[in-house]
Write a protein that binds this DNA or RNA. Structure first.
Lengths: 227, 227
DNA sequence: CGGCGCCTTGAACCAAGTCAAGCTCTGTGG
DNA sequence: CCACAGAGCTTGACTTGGTTCAAGGCGCCG
């Protein structure tokens, strides 16, 4: 069961599954905090934070993409989710991060002190509610992700593509992440991801103009797969 | 991939994976609400709430056990988690439940109006924090659960047993749930669960005095499996 | 134009699923 | 008190979806 990659520290040079019942309160969280922190640049592959490091900051993506992941003791990597512009990540109730985060591509990210948000929430119950909603939204995503992992390879890949397309609200999606990233998110191997994509192309469900671009041709076909 | 059971309405006759980094703020939530709702009885198999029903109540188990689950469109069932005495469940940020909940065995459950808790949180920032922590704790569990689902059958079953033993803090665990429940939680079939358990018994890692009782004989062996 | 990541494809293999008995425990009625 | 029925669990034999191992192709950058 060497589904995941071994640790690959490609160093420095330095989409999570659509929750049907997802609500999106994240947008407002940062808005309500007056000074919306410093924008920082991260080059492709750069670590944003590591597992067990103190969770002193909360992040919001302006541009680029981020993966959040955990490494199992035997070296396998499980990607918990992908984050895209507008998404907030790194918000934890505990004082330490439960997973690591890296830039999937060159990214610009707003960074805010967690204590600032927490202090505000202490005084302003609306901000407290937003904090809660943001975590609840992540919970919903995590459960959808777990649901994905008991399905067939076809269902997983189809769900992944549909989720991305929804998030970018378009039929043509540029994949910022590698096949390995997709595989580690879906709990499959790169080979299976690759084979499944070509299979979808053969079924005319999608088109692959390049390996990093997917055009959905038949959403219905993908949806019915998505059991 | 008929991993899960088809819908089995066994009607009325009427453990989630150990989060290493789990904190347990749930205990206090109900304590801080003055009138801690009505205790209700549910017989084995009784539905407590259904997916998409309004989430008007929050629940805390006094006695018994509860499973939370979703049914996929093709009839497979995915159990998201098990809850035991002291655990809070059914708390949602949205107005509708994202999953169903049933009593695994005859249970007594404290029921509190969600609006009561929310109103209190509006005024008392400590309660608001507890609300958030409770959801964050569920998030942690959900992510651990997802992590489980990419592992081998042996690793999943071992992790499940260790989790239960931790929760009940003992080496001897009475399983309130059926093999089918365990299978649907771990994303396996009953046959695989059964085979893996007997295999552990053959390895002297556990003992199975009856099919519903497990005695951990060699936690280390189970842990190393748990990659 | 050559080297290197990344992706695709093929063939063989294996862990877990499926199908099919058979066993065990429990409760019920004769 | 025993026999019988049924649900739940185990075990065996076979199948299969996805992994593994191994080439080979493609595109990008120096």
């Amino acid at each position: 069961m060497r589904t995941q990659t071994a640790i690959r520290t490609q160093f420095p040079q330095s989409s999570s599954n659509a929750a049907v019942r997802t609500f999106v309160p994240e947008q407002t969280l940062f808005g309500s905090i007056e000074l919306a922190g410093a924008p920082m640049s991260f080059t492709k592959g750069a670590e944003i934070y590591g597992e067990d490091e103190p969770s002193d900051y909360v992040y919001k993506i302006v541009k680029g993409a981020v993966r959040s992941y955990r490494i199992l003791s035997d070296g396998r990597r499980q990607i918990e989710g992908f984050y895209f512009p507008g998404d907030v990540f790194g918000l934890e109730a505990g004082d330490a991060h439960g997973s690591s985060a890296e830039a999937v591509s060159d990214s610009i990210i707003l960074v805010v002190r967690r204590s600032t948000i927490l202090d505000t929430a202490q005084r302003d119950s609306d901000v407290a509610t937003q904090l809660w909603s943001c975590t609840a939204c992540e919970l919903s995503r995590a459960r959808d992700h777990a649901l994905l992992l008991v399905k067939t390879a076809q269902e997983r890949v189809a769900a992944f593509l549909l989720d991305l397309a929804n998030r970018f609200s378009g039929n043509s999606v540029e994949l910022p992440m590698s096949r390995q990233d997709i595989a580690d998110y879906l709990g499959l191997t790169i080979e299976t991801v690759s084979r499944t994509l070509t299979q979808f192309q053969d079924n005319a469900a999608i088109e692959l103009p390049t390996s990093r671009r997917v055009v959905l041709r038949n959403r219905g076909a993908l949806h019915t797969l998505n059991s």
